[in-house]
Amino acid sequence: MFSVDTPSRAAGQSASELVPSRYALQVGEIDVLVVSDGVLPLPAATMATNVDPAELADWLQRNFLPPDMFDWPLNVLVARSGEQTILVDAGLGSQFSGFPRAGQFPRRLEDAGIPLESVTDVIITHMHMDHVGGLLAAGVQERLRPDVRIHVAKAEVDFWTQPDFTRTDMPKPVPNVLRSTANSFVEAYRQNLCIFTDRHEVAPGVVVRLTGGHTEGHSVVDLESGGERLMFAGDAMFPVGFENPDWHNGFEHDPVVSARVRRGLFQELADNGGLLVAAHLPFPSIGRVAADGEAFRYVPIMWDF
Rank of each mutant, 00 (worst) to 15 (best):
P20L: 06
P53H: 04
A48R: 07
S14D: 14
M69N: 13
A48M: 04
S8T: 14
S14F: 05
N50E: 02
T46P: 03
P7D: 10
R22I: 07
L56G: 00
D5H: 13
V32D: 02
L42W: 08
D68M: 12
D58G: 14
L65N: 08
Y23A: 04
Q13F: 00
T6A: 07
P66K: 07
Y23C: 06
L18I: 12
D58T: 15
W59G: 02
W59D: 02
D58K: 15
V35A: 08
S36L: 10
A11L: 15
V35Y: 01
T46F: 09
A48L: 01
F70Q: 10
Y23F: 15
Q26G: 10
A24F: 09
S14P: 08
E29L: 07
A45M: 05
A45T: 12
A45R: 15
P7I: 12
S21G: 08
S8C: 06
T49W: 00
M47G: 04
D31A: 14
D58M: 13
V35S: 08
L40K: 07
V34C: 05
V32S: 03
D52I: 04
P41C: 03
N50R: 12
A15C: 04
S36V: 06
A48Q: 03
L33I: 08
S14M: 11
F70S: 03
D37I: 10
P41Y: 01
V35M: 09
Q13T: 03
A24I: 12
A44G: 04
L56P: 00
P67R: 09
N63H: 15
S36N: 04
L40V: 11
T46S: 13
D52V: 03
D58E: 14
P41Q: 07
N63R: 13
R9M: 11
A44K: 03
D37H: 13
V32G: 06
A44F: 01
A44L: 00
Q61D: 09
A45D: 07
Q26T: 11
F64L: 14
D5W: 14
T49K: 06
V35R: 10
D37M: 11
D58P: 08
V27T: 10
Q26F: 04
R9I: 05
V35D: 03
L40M: 12
R62D: 00
N50T: 09
T46D: 10
E29C: 05
D5I: 08
A57P: 01
I30Q: 08
V35F: 03
A57V: 00
Q61N: 13
M47P: 02
I30R: 11
V34R: 02
E55H: 05
A44M: 08
P66C: 05
V39D: 06
R22T: 13
V19R: 10
V19D: 09
V19M: 09
P20F: 00
V32Q: 05
F64A: 15
E17I: 10
L33V: 07
M47S: 07
P41E: 04
D52F: 01
F70G: 05
P41T: 04
E17K: 11
G28K: 06
S36T: 15
P20G: 05
A48E: 00
V51F: 00
P73T: 06
